[in-house]
Every structure is written in C-alpha cells, then in structure tokens.
Design a protein around this nucleic acid. Structure first.
Lengths: 214, 214
DNA sequence: TGTCAACTGTCAGTCGCTGTCATTAGCCTC
DNA sequence: GAGGCTAATGACAGCGACTGACAGTTGACA
C-alpha cells in the first residue's frame, strides 16, 4: 500500500509510477468533475493505460477515492500506539489526531499533494455514495482503535465496554467535525485541525454533564 | 410508500400488488441466495414483469432491501413524538424503540411477514455494501431524531449540542446491539428486543462514570 | 542471449441502470 | 358501450463498472 523506494528493479519502479499516476489522475478528475461524472475509462486514458490495467491496480473505482485516507489512518494508528503510557485514553486519542494533522505531509506527500488530498476529503464528504463507504470504513477503524486502547489499558475489549464507548464518542465527534469542515469554505489543513480540536475540547464537559459552556 | 387500501380503482390495487410482490420476491431471494448473488432480472422474472418495470417501482436494487426498514423507522419517529412530555429524552428514546419492537407487525405485516423482515435485517448486517448504506441512512435518521428531541425540549438543534450528543450515544448503542444480534443465532424479534434493552440499560451507568456494573 | 514470468492490452460478456418508443389496458365521457 | 385519453408496461438499445480468458510484450536472470 505504501510507496516503496528500496529494493526496486526497473519493473517495481514502473509499477509504482503507474499506480501513483492513476491515483493522482483519479483524484484530480474526481475533485474537478465530480466522482460520479468521472469514468474509469477517463482515468485510464489520462495515464495512457487500458481500463483493464486500472482494475489490476485498484479493485474498484471507490478504492482510489480512499487510498490516501488509508495511509493517513494507518499513520494515525501508529501515532496512537506511540503515545506515552501516562496519557489517558482520551488524551492519547486527542494527541494522536492532532499530531496526525500537524504532520499530514509525511505519509502522503510523496504520492499526492496535501492540497489534493484535502480536496478529495471534501469531495467524499459531499458525495452520498462515498459517504456511505466512508462511514463503513470508519466503523472498521473504530474497531481497530478500540483494540489499541484496550491494549494500552490492559483491558479485554470483548468484556469491558469502556474502550468501545470511549472510541465511539471520540469517533462521533470526529465525524461531526469532518462534516462541518466539509460543508464550510476553508479547505485548509489548519482549518480542520482547528475544528477538530475545538470539538474534542467540548466533549469532556458535555459527557461530564456540564451543559453550559460559559 | 405505505400500503394504501382506500380510494383505489383496479389500477391502484394492481400496482400495489405488483410492488408488494416485487418486494417480497426480492427479500426472499436476497435472504436465500444472498444480495450480491441475486440479479434484478431474477426478481422481475419471479413476479413475471420486465426488468424495466422493476425500476419503475424501485429506483435501485438497494432500495428494496431498505423498503421495510423505512416503514419501521418512520413508525419509530411517530412513536417518539407521541411519548409523554414528562419523559426525559433518553427515556423517550428508550420507550419508543421498545414500543416499536413490541408492535413490529402493525406497520409491516400487510406487506411482508415479520419473520422475512428479520431475516432481511440480518442479511443487511452481514453484507458489506449494504452495511455502508445502512450506516448512511442511520445518520440521516439520527439527524431527524435529534430534531424531534430538540423540539420536545424546546431547544435549538444548531445551537445546543445536547440533542445531537444524546442521539449519537443512543444510536451508537443501537448499532452495537444490531451488530451483535446480527452475528448471533437467534433471529427472533424477542431476541433483538432483549439485546437492545440490556444494552440501553448499560448506557446510563457508563456515561455517569460507573464502570463496574456489579 | 534466450528463457521464464510478470505485466499489459484486447475482447467478449455480465449486471445495474436509463432513455426511447410502441403497445396494452384501466378509466372516463358521450 | 364505443371511442378517446392516459397511465402502465414491454422491448430494445446503450452506458458504465467490473471480470474472465487469451495473447502479446517486456523486465529479470541464468
């Protein structure tokens, strides 16, 4: 899934270049023409390969839309695991997301410009068929995150509700933030980082029963 | 969307019968062969109409899978609105779901046997492409429910976080219950009602910070 | 350099879904 | 109750996502 530079013959490099080119072209087309109005044939044509070849790199048109998200998410999980053991579950989650936003370029820049990824994210948030897939992927990620949290705390995910409940609350807020950001004007990373942070900071008080913020 | 009996000429009745037949055949095929392995042609053939006619009754194959859910959900919203004003938001939600399960037959029996609907629900919970759609539909329903709650409490949904947060927590638990039920053996209404109730009853203590249940 | 395996293109076909147009069949009026 | 109106349907053609099969091309490596 990641860009591999090392141990590569000409063949490997060529493959990587084709994949990257397909991905970039796809996202560029999606964000300019719209996902539904972009055909796989157009994507393939833009890179000058056959449609059949496209389907050898990506199992579906959908997959291209989420390929970069995939990289970002797995980075998030890594960052979460690296959090100091002293952090509470919520602090760890909060810290990992903010870290992830602050260093967004690292995992993806080599494949796709950050700005294109942001446009892609916004496009996903405004395309019904992709929203559906996005939500399903999110629940799968939630499951993984809950396991990491349980591990950190030395708990059994199946027996103890707390990891899943914590993650569910956290994810709910993240989804809300994503939706709000997607509906807004400012497409920048700074913007979503800011929205994320302020929403997360409201979660604690709300759960604690403090309804009034002032 | 609902079964209309009154003010019907032969034409209306015939249409209704065709729609019901298509729906029943579709769900029957989905639950026996699997959603992906049944084609629209098969559904149409089973009712002896052309494939084109199928698409005049349902905008997509997906729609048939959720047609009954739709009826159940709108019934739930109605029940929620009818809850006594004295109920707290959570009590109202809890009461409405349990009511809905207890009288499941009323809204749907005329169109589809309850048992078929239960099998359909389970099938949705175990079909990735439908899980995605299910989640998106759920978030749309959540939005509606949040508005009802806000109305009940005389609050502004946009300004006050509480309605949405409450509904988000409630829905999260409902989804968990649905998933658990779908993975289990017992397909009965009683079974899911029971799972729902016990999960909901755990939510209060968990949110209040009581981690130990004993 | 030649052999092998990986990669790719071409083609044909399935399935979901849509537009078009001719035909059928309730419905309504005179 | 014959005839006209219109909703409902069927038949057909076509698009786009996706797959399987087969043949041609091109790196890898002895």
């Amino acid at each position: 899934m990641k860009t591999q530079e090392a141990h590569s013959g000409l063949r490997e490099r060529k493959k990587q270049r084709t994949r990257d080119a397909l991905l970039r072209s796809a996202l560029e087309l999606f964000t300019t023409k719209g996902y539904d109005r972009t055909t796989v044939d157009e994507i393939a044509e833009a890179v000058d390969v056959s449609q059949r070849t496209f389907f050898r790199y990506f199992t579906s048109k959908e997959e291209t839309a989420f390929a970069v998200q995939d990289m970002v998410e797995s980075r998030f999980v890594t960052l979460l695991r690296e959090r100091p053991a002293a952090d509470s579950p919520f602090e760890a989650l909060r810290g990992a997301v903010l870290d992830a936003w602050d260093t967004l370029g690292e995992p993806i820049e080599e494949v796709v410009p950050v700005e294109l990824h942001m446009r892609t994210y916004q496009m996903i948030e405004s395309t019904p068929s992709l929203i559906a897939v996005h939500l399903r992927r999110s629940t799968e990620l939630e499951e993984e995150i809950a396991r990491v949290i349980a591990e950190r705390e030395g708990l059994d995910v199946e027996a103890d509700l707390r990891p899943r409940v914590t993650v569910a609350a956290f994810s709910g807020v993240m989804r809300m933030a994503g939706r709000l950001w997607g509906a807004g004007e400012d497409i920048s990373v700074e913007s979503i980082r800011e929205v994320t942070e302020s929403y997360l900071d409201q979660l604690g008080p709300v759960l604690a029963g403090k309804w009034r913020t002032e």
